[in-house]
Design a protein around this nucleic acid. Structure first.
Length: 292
DNA sequence: ACCCAGGAAATTC
DNA sequence: GAATTTCATGGG
């Protein structure tokens, strides 16, 4: 019954979109995607759910809203020349269905987590945004991380035509003083953010290099930054540089490893360990009784 | 008042 | 070198 109402609303929206010539990109035959799971699973911090099930947010300086009707993904307010960008952002060229099957064969609990979190995809975010987001994440909770990131963008990001804000460029932050960051209420992380911005801006740290070099080398590159340890480096590599072999071990994952996967190590999860990690992380966070 | 949050640096032993 | 403490801030 609700399927009928949904299709009515969807049809009406298409008509109004045409009448008002709304800029919109659509991607057909999109599988293995759940926007809520993907955009609200703690890998990104700039999307907000709207009452109609769509999400609005900013990525790479583009403010859009996205919705999924069946297997049709729409990106509203996106121009045709952004097709490659959004296809890449949502990682639409990777076959998550077969990866999920492959991972599920490794361990029965992983199979259960993968089934539960089947709509998660690893986004290809901007590396500097991912770096800053996960610096902010340390000893912090997801709700407050979002608040600090939001204030960071509102204070120092470029204003976009619709009033939203881009994520600040490293040069912009690097030109400030640490005291200028006090409105963020980021606490001890402010000087870490400053060090990251300065080292990226002046080339001391080159995130792009981390796309191709050996994993340990990529980690070491990011860990030149004060406030970036193994875990923040792993998250930056996974969510900002799409190194999907990364397996970040935060407090949740450490508990999950001891209680659900005793005797296993990150390397046991193979080339797609990062995807397994997100399945497990989301599964545990939604079912905290499993690891406590 | 106390504890915890997608940790890492600083200090101590 | 390994274990413990400290670092801001906000919510439960």
């Amino acid at each position: 019954m609700s399927a009928f109402i949904l299709s009515q609303k969807s049809a009406l929206r298409k008509i109004t979109d045409v009448i008002f010539l709304k800029k919109m990109l659509t991607f057909n035959n999109v599988r293995d995607l759940d926007l809520s799971q993907t955009l609200d699973c703690g890998q990104c911090f700039r999307w907000t759910a709207l009452p109609d099930g769509s999400f609005s947010g900013v990525a790479f300086g583009k403010s859009v809203s996205v919705r999924l009707d069946g297997t049709v993904l729409s990106v509203e307010n996106a121009a045709e020349n952004e097709r490659r960008l959004w296809r890449s952002y949502f990682d639409l060229d990777l076959d998550y269905g077969s990866i999920r099957a492959e991972l599920s064969a490794l361990h029965p609990v992983l199979a259960e987590a993968a089934r539960y979190a089947a709509g998660i995809r690893i986004l290809r975010q901007d590396p500097f945004e991912a770096l800053c987001s996960f610096i902010i994440s340390q000893n912090n909770n997801i709700k407050r991380i979002k608040g600090i990131v939001q204030r960071l963008c509102a204070c120092f990001g470029d204003r976009l035509p619709d009033g939203a804000f881009a994520f600040p460029r490293p040069e912009t932050i690097a030109a400030l003083s640490t005291d200028d960051l006090s409105p963020l209420r980021a606490g001890f992380r402010a000087r870490y953010l400053m060090d990251a911005a300065r080292k990226v801006a002046d080339g001391t740290v080159n995130p792009e290099k981390c796309r191709v070099c050996d994993y340990d080398e990529a980690r070491a590159e990011l860990m030149k930054i004060t406030g970036v340890g193994v875990k923040v480096a792993d998250c930056t590599l996974l969510f900002g540089l799409h190194r999907i072999e990364a397996f970040p071990l935060d407090i949740w994952m450490k508990r999950a490893m001891t209680t659900l996967f005793p005797g296993m190590i990150p390397a046991d999860f193979g080339a797609y360990a990062g995807i397994a990690q997100q399945y497990i992380f989301h599964y545990c966070r939604m079912n905290p009784n499993l690891v406590r």
